[in-house]
């Protein structure tokens, strides 16, 4: 007798970020990392995000292996970077390049949550600034996806300065009459919120994403009270006037290509 009718091979599973239920990896990938049980938008690896958004085979990466050092000699930082590289399979916390979306050429950056929670150090800041400078020179629009815990403290003040540097590069791009659309994903906080995340001509967000400047616990301490669940959600930011639209994941590609088309003057 052969054994074809044996029990199904157990599939590799991952735990949903919210409901913590095991979900088959293939099912999760198939749903664009949206939990089939609770609807939570789980984080997507940056490279997968680019694949899902851009026209097949159109993406060309910029500065793929640009790596930072330990600029202020912070103890233990090299080790952290090494671990982050292994965990994420990426050199740094952001992937930059150019691509086509629905046939529209653009520059794109996508931050990587698996790399020290997308924290912004000098390499991240420099890659994004370089992308905006390139886009300005080539007269291209920029699409950005943010996910970040904020500035990378192991790089001290050099990381804070990236906020000014990138904001300046965004300003030059804007003054050249070029279009910048940013999509805020879960979580977008701290120094990234206080710089290029809030500087888009158009700012969209994913449903339920945490978006804010100060940390929730810090605010609760300052206020001496618990905050409601929806505090600092994408919906809260839209209600308060800081987000143009909340766009579900499956609609983003179409949304982006339409917005790019509307800004090419054609």
């Amino acid at each position: 007798m052969n054994q074809v009718s044996a029990a199904p091979v157990t599939e590799p599973t991952v735990l949903c970020e919210k409901c913590k239920q095991p979900i088959s990896r293939t099912a999760l990938i198939g749903s664009g990392y949206v939990c089939p049980l609770c609807g939570k938008y789980n984080r997507i690896p940056a490279r997968t995000r680019i694949e899902l958004l851009t026209d097949k085979g159109s993406f060309c990466e910029h500065n793929a292996t640009l790596v930072g050092e330990n600029p202020i000699g912070f103890p233990g930082y090299e080790e952290k970077i090494r671990t982050a590289r292994e965990k994420s399979g990426e050199y740094e916390g952001v992937i930059c390049g150019e691509a086509e979306i629905g046939g529209e050429r653009c520059c794109i950056f996508v931050m990587e949550s698996a790399f020290m929670m997308g924290s912004m150090g000098t390499a991240v800041g420099d890659k994004i600034a370089l992308l905006f400078e390139y886009a300005t020179a080539k007269k291209l629009p920029v699409i950005g996806y943010t996910v970040s815990g904020g500035a990378r403290m192991q790089e001290g003040m050099l990381s804070l300065m990236q906020m000014a540097k990138v904001s300046g590069a965004v300003k030059h791009h804007s003054e050249a009459g070029l279009f910048y659309l940013v999509c805020l994903t879960d979580p977008t906080t701290g120094g990234v919120t206080a710089s290029f995340a809030m500087l888009g001509d158009m700012i969209i967000a994913e449903p339920g994403a945490l978006i804010g400047f100060a940390g929730r616990r810090v605010i609760e301490q300052v206020m001496g009270q618990k905050l409601p669940d929806e505090f600092q959600s994408a919906e809260f930011q839209m209600k308060n006037g800081f987000v143009d639209a909340i766009v579900p994941r499956e609609e983003q590609r179409n949304f982006l290509s339409r917005m790019l088309r509307l800004h090419t003057g054609r």
């Binding site: 919120t193 710089s195 995340a197 809030m198 804010g212 100060a214 308060n240 800081f242």
Partner: peptide
């Protein structure tokens, strides 16, 4: 936060 601390700094 409601009035856009991040946006104002940016």
């Amino acid at each position: 936060e409601e009035r856009g601390a991040g946006a104002a700094i940016a």
